[in-house]
Each structure stands twice: as structure tokens, then as C-alpha cells.
Amino acid sequence: MWIYEKKLQYPVRVGKCDVRMAKYLIEQYGGADGELAAALRYMNQRYSIPDKIIGLLTDISTEELAHLEMIATMVYKLTKDATVEQLKEAGLGAHYANHDSALYYENAGGVPWTAAYIQAKGDPIADLYEDIAAEEKARATYQWLINMTDDVDLMDSLKFLREREVVHSQRFREAVEILKEDREYKRVF
């Protein structure tokens, strides 16, 4: 089970009314390498991974939900007061027709999230290498998002999220090392 803390992992302040940025940020909400995909991927893989790695997948998937909430806050702040005209100008006309200004799990191109984005192969090395790749792809996405905004407040939160991808990638790499080294094996001389 989970305990919910009613605050964001890191403050989200949006300093500039840039509705178009909401459309781009959605990539990290419901995109293939986004936070939802990450959270669900790790939370599912942890059932069929060696015991030593289960806790890591639980911790990181939980943190991904906290990141999901941060992205949602950014998108919400950028779209909640937008007029229909502004949404249309920002390329969100189709989104408005389907969802008003509600958030939806879709990528920046409007393609809905699908479980086909994630894999659980049952092979611990294959799964962890997918997880490392997912973190690097999310890191790159954050870099492109940082490049696309000139809002320093938004950039600050995005830099925090990017750094967490770096740390998660490191921990998954260490998990691979644990599995390689066979540390549970008792050597008798």
C-alpha cells in the first residue's frame, strides 16, 4: 500500500503564460518515455525480479508517480485559464474538442498512452536494461523540454526532474552489477 503526502516532491512554479509549452510537456505525462510509463513499468516488473531488486523498483516507481504529479501541475497551470482561442493557437484545439482543458494520458502529438510502450520480459537483465534505457530517454526528453522554454521557474523544476533520471539510471546500473556479481553466493574455501 501507499501513503500519500499532499505536497509535491519539488515545487512547481510556472512564471510565464506559454500555453504551447503545455502541449510539449504532455510528452512526459503520457508519452512512451514519460512518467506514467516509467511508474507502471517498474511497478509491474518488480514481481518477477530477484528479491534484492524488488525494493529498488518499488521505490523508483513510487517516485515516478510523484514526478507525474509535478508534470500534471505544470500542464494544469498552463492550461486552466487558457481561452479556446489560446488553446487553438497552441495546437491544442483537437485536445479541447475531446477533453476541454482536462489532462489526458497522451504524448505531445496527441497519441493516447498505451501499455505497448512498456515491457516485462521476465528476464532480469533484459528488464533492467530496458529501465536504464527508459531513464536515459526521459533524461533526453527533459533536455529538449528545457531547450524549448525560456521560463526560468519551469526550467528549474525540469532540471530537478532531469537530475532524478540521472540518479535512477545509476541505481538501475548498480542493480545490474548486483545481479552480475552473484553476491548471495556463499563461497567456501
Binding site: 532540471k159 537530475e163 532524478r164 540521472v166 540518479v167
Partner: peptide
């Protein structure tokens, strides 16, 4: 650590916006 997103200088990766 709270601001940077990591406790470890060895894992801190600053990033500034880049132009293509």
C-alpha cells in the same frame, strides 16, 4: 541536495539550455 535533486556531487549533472 533538495535543490539539485541528488545528495551526491558525483551524480550531479548540471544542464543548461542548448541551441541545436
Amino acid at each position: 541536495a533538495l535543490r539539485f535533486g541528488t545528495l551526491w556531487p558525483a551524480l550531479f549533472s548540471p544542464y543548461s539550455p542548448q541551441n541545436r
